[in-house]
Design a binder for these strands. Structure first.
Lengths: 152, 152
DNA sequence: AAATTAACCCACTATTAACCACTTATCTTA
DNA sequence: TAAGATAAGTGGTTAATAGTGGGTTAATTT
């Protein structure tokens, strides 16, 4: 089953003195109907934070539950993926507090860029995103490979 | 049936003069509704202590019963996993006393890092966890193998 | 019986979460 | 298009909770 979420768009907001970040209204609306304000923030694979709606996260968890802790690789993988995951809700204003560890990891100062990426939302330091944007070009070869799998 | 627990997140607490450790509130809440404060602490496979809610532990015991003691590996494995298991409850403040043998095994001094790993909770010496974090990188080959089994 | 350990209780402090309030932007309707 | 109404983004205050420390009594152990 593919995801029911369709997060798109880019927004630049600010993080306040209490480490609160506002979820842009267009994105937030998708939560309210389906998940009652609950979501998961965790480390992204790149230097940013990822937000998953809770039932999207539940799907991931079920996958992870298949892994036995007798395997060393599994233990490391599980630990490192789960310990940075925080289950949160946003407040009546639609904000949430970003945990300090993720602020550090994402090198977030005053402003944040929030982008919708289908089934997840990414929180970036605007400068880092800009830098990535310039250096992480997709080469022609990779585009060719993508074209075999995705038809857009 | 897969586990009903979804421990996640990382917390750094301290162990007090009476060897008491506080369970972080977000994790503790999952006990109160389901297991009435009873849990099992035992040796982790890595140099840490593992906490299982009691009915999770019961499930694991059933798994272990499948292993025949005719096998030497099984005998050693069973012995080492069962003899260090302590059934405990936490007090009215949500704390429990970590047995001295596990303090020694985990090399715990003043601070502890507590992390949620789905169906169990791990108690670490912060320095050891940091060291593991750096040395135990998962190599590309292992990631490839994981990708065959887990789709996230 | 003394000593150690465990259970229970109380209390302080810092952090967090719930609440309220204001400003700016967007939308609606005359 | 102007004005009012609604929603969105931001900021601060207060009340509740979480983490920590310690003391007292009961239970075990030696």
């Amino acid at each position: 089953m593919s995801s029911q979420y369709t997060f798109t768009g880019q927004f630049t907001f600010s993080i306040d003195s209490k480490n609160r970040i506002n979820i842009p209204a267009p994105l937030r609306k998708q939560f309210l109907t389906k998940d009652k304000k609950t979501f998961v923030v965790t480390r992204g694979i790149d230097q940013c934070a990822w937000i998953y709606p809770i039932n999207e996260w539940n799907f991931i968890q079920n996958e992870l539950k298949q892994l036995s802790s007798l395997s060393k690789t599994n233990r490391i993988f599980l630990r490192n993926h789960l310990r940075h995951a925080n289950i949160l809700k946003f407040d009546s204003q639609g904000r949430f507090v970003l945990p300090q560890s993720l602020i550090d990891y994402s090198a977030i100062k005053k402003d944040v860029t929030i982008i919708g990426v289908l089934n997840k939302i990414e929180i970036w330091n605007p400068n880092l995103l800009r830098k990535i944007d310039q250096s992480d070009e997709i080469d022609d070869q990779s585009y060719e490979e993508l074209s075999e799998r995705v038809n857009i």
